[in-house]
Design a protein around this nucleic acid. Sequence first.
DNA 1: TTTCATGTATGCGTTTTTGTATGAATTGGC
DNA 2: GCCAATTCATACAAAAACGCATACATGAAA
Lengths: 296, 296
Amino acid sequence: MHFDWNQIRAFLATVEEGSLSAAARALGQSQPTLSRQISALEADLGIALFERVGRGLEITPSGLDLVEHVRAMGDAATRISLAASGRNHAIAGKVRITASDALAAHVLPPALAHIRAKAPGIELEIVATNALSDLRRREADIALRHQRPTEPDLIARLIHTSRASLYAAPSYLARIGTPVTAQDLADADFIGFDGSDRLLDGLTAIGIPATQASFPLKSESGTVAWEMVRKGLGIGVMMDEVAAACPDVMRVLPDLPGFEIPVWLTTHRELHTSRRIRLVYDALAATFAPSSHINL
Amino acid sequence: MHFDWNQIRAFLATVEEGSLSAAARALGQSQPTLSRQISALEADLGIALFERVGRGLEITPSGLDLVEHVRAMGDAATRISLAASGRNHAIAGKVRITASDALAAHVLPPALAHIRAKAPGIELEIVATNALSDLRRREADIALRHQRPTEPDLIARLIHTSRASLYAAPSYLARIGTPVTAQDLADADFIGFDGSDRLLDGLTAIGIPATQASFPLKSESGTVAWEMVRKGLGIGVMMDEVAAACPDVMRVLPDLPGFEIPVWLTTHRELHTSRRIRLVYDALAATFAPSSHINL
DNA sequence: TTTCATGTATGCGTTTTTGTATGAATTGGC
DNA sequence: GCCAATTCATACAAAAACGCATACATGAAA
């Protein structure tokens, strides 16, 4: 077992990122360094890990044999990182929060200001993505999600239930002839959120005869989708608190029940013992609590 | 996950060896290096791993939390080493063989000479110990054992079945009055091998009324035990091939059936694909084969 | 108590590693 | 078919890590 463990990490990054250059970027090192590390590892192990084929590398069967165990090593390293952060009781340091971009853009900022005032030593990094970041891989420390996480290693708390409704620009509603019943929306354009059918299911649940074809416009980004709505490109779903601040949209079919959007605050079990992360976690929970002086 | 993986290895070695100095010896590094690596790791993780208490270190509860995952990382590293060696098809390099010291001293040498002649590029290292080295932890590449291994990752081959009998120096037999029946050995002194009761069970199986008290002398080392026998300190068990080369001992109760001692050649499944290790493995098997020109 | 063995931390010179700059080679697009 | 954009490898200077020597502390033994 006399090889350099950092070179294993270099190998893992190269496999996962697909090239030495990408691995170097991911690890915050230079490409020549990665090149040398891989070469040295190959020399140490006495086997060829990659075949240099023009632009880029191609992993060899020998290298492929190792990947499984290399991944196991990386996973163990991630668990070390988690456990260590959980034991790290410093009040200062980085905390990475992930949230849907709608939450990140419209709901999070006042909460963050609150945390900054309370603990100036804490650096906050917001990862605004609708992809579910994997807390177990340490892609973030705290996540705000709209679904209850199923992973047993995570702890989650329902901190808020937003109400959301259909909104559109008056110009768009005028163009399609202001709808008064759910049936009137059969041919309307809806702005899609992501690849999933969750929105479609929600629409049909409240009686709107939508189909896959009802979503001619989609965007992974919630803010982009919302801008499309404001610009009159179609009908979209938005949390009522956020829409209330936008005078250029109006609610579609106000008599419809609307949707309930739960907000789950989530972190890793190990991280919950960290004072720094616990502080941010509790502050976020307090911000969303009904009694909070910060109103949404 | 932005800590130095080599520092994790340093931490693991320190935990397993018990001190920085011992860890440095185990890793082939200097003690100041280990000291700095641990300090740097503590700084990176933001937690204290050890408490410096005068002479030596004492692991903290935080450090203890990490050990489990650090071990997992080390185990993965070992598996990488195994898989890589299995894929390493170089004919030159090290091969570590472990065997009971009796085998190592009396049986192995001619086989090793054979291998050396066949493949001069191969370095052979013999680990002579009666403790069962763990092939899965890469304590050796090939093992000669007297038991069939139970681990599923290992492949084993019964290459020989030695016959062993009771031997003693004539002087000792004269002192206890040359025994003619198994019952005559009730009060005899036997030289024990190890902590187990295997020898005792073997003696009672062939009708010798031995008890725990029959083993006033024991040695972990088979060669030491055999020397005790030759010097007239008691009765011992030895493979007939070896005893035949010792004119200063004689067989006790030649009519007794004796023991069968199987010799299992064992290696790790992953290593069996390595040309270098396969060569040694096959050569050892050939040496023990009945048709071999190297007679035991 | 003194002495010795063991173990950790620090200063300094040297070796090793890393990053920047550059070149060679290849793929994809126009 | 050519140009632009990537990607990997090498040269050289800067930075980091390492080992040696040493100082200091502790526990066991004489």
